[in-house]
Amino acid sequence: MILNFLAFCTLVATLAALPRLIIGPTAADRIIAAQLAGTGTVATLIVLGTADKTPALFDAALVFATLAAVSGLAFVALQRTRL
């Protein structure tokens, strides 16, 4: 029960940074918000995995963590290709 509440709180933390993604003002702000949301989903999966007693979710969390790193890198690395 407590863990379910904590999972809910983690989801709130994941979504709480998203207004930054919309209002910006700079591209860097939006990337930061997306990155925070990525960490938040990893945390949510870990808490859910503890609450549901299914360790398969931990593997999913690991996949999310790796891919969050890749997409964050893509955001930074592909910025200048505007021209």
Binding site: Q35, A65, A68, G72
Partner: peptide, 27 residues
Amino acid sequence: SLLVLGLCVVLVALSGVTIGHLIARAH
């Protein structure tokens, strides 16, 4: 499960640091 969780933490911390540095650098 400690192994999986440890890897998660390392990856997230590393990507946070690297992306933070890269954004600061570009800025």
